[in-house]
């Protein structure tokens, strides 16, 4: 497998094996970009603390190939049950409508 296939396989594995994954710049505690910080804040507001956060500034495979995997060019990217939810705008809008909480509850309930 070449670099791209390895990275795409790793992404697929991460997003399918974990109910909630946030690819972001930095970490939830130390976000390196306003949008990534906002995304982590929204997940915290949903009462979610144990989720997989991938720092794309330290994961070259994700940095280079996640945009192609998702057909979505920017970070952060939130995945629930392997599906791209979107960036921080969409996460915030879904949170305001209560949709994000519902999705997370369903995803984390089945994961136990």
């Amino acid at each position: 497998m070449d670099e791209k296939e390895i990275a795409l396989a790793q992404i697929r594995k991460t997003v399918t094996e974990n109910p909630v994954v946030l690819y972001m710049k930095g970490t939830p505690q130390f976000p390196q970009c306003g949008f990534s910080g906002r995304a982590a804040q929204v997940l915290r507001a949903c009462g979610l603390n144990n989720y997989v956060a991938v720092n794309v500034l330290e994961d070259e495979g994700a940095w280079n190939y996640l945009p192609a995997y998702a057909d979505f060019p920017t970070f952060p990217q939130c995945y629930i049950n392997g599906e791209l939810i979107g960036g921080s705008d969409i996460m915030a809008a879904m949170y305001e409508q209560g949709e994000l909480q519902e999705l997370i509850e369903k995803a984390t309930a089945t994961a136990q």
């Binding site: 060019p73 939810i85 969409i90 809008a93």
Partner: peptide, 17 residues
């Protein structure tokens, strides 16, 4: 949906992003 709407805008912007 919102995600598809945002993707459409990104596609229109292309490499100008």
């Amino acid at each position: 949906g919102m995600l598809q709407q945002h993707k459409l805008v990104y596609q229109v912007l292309g490499d100008r992003m």
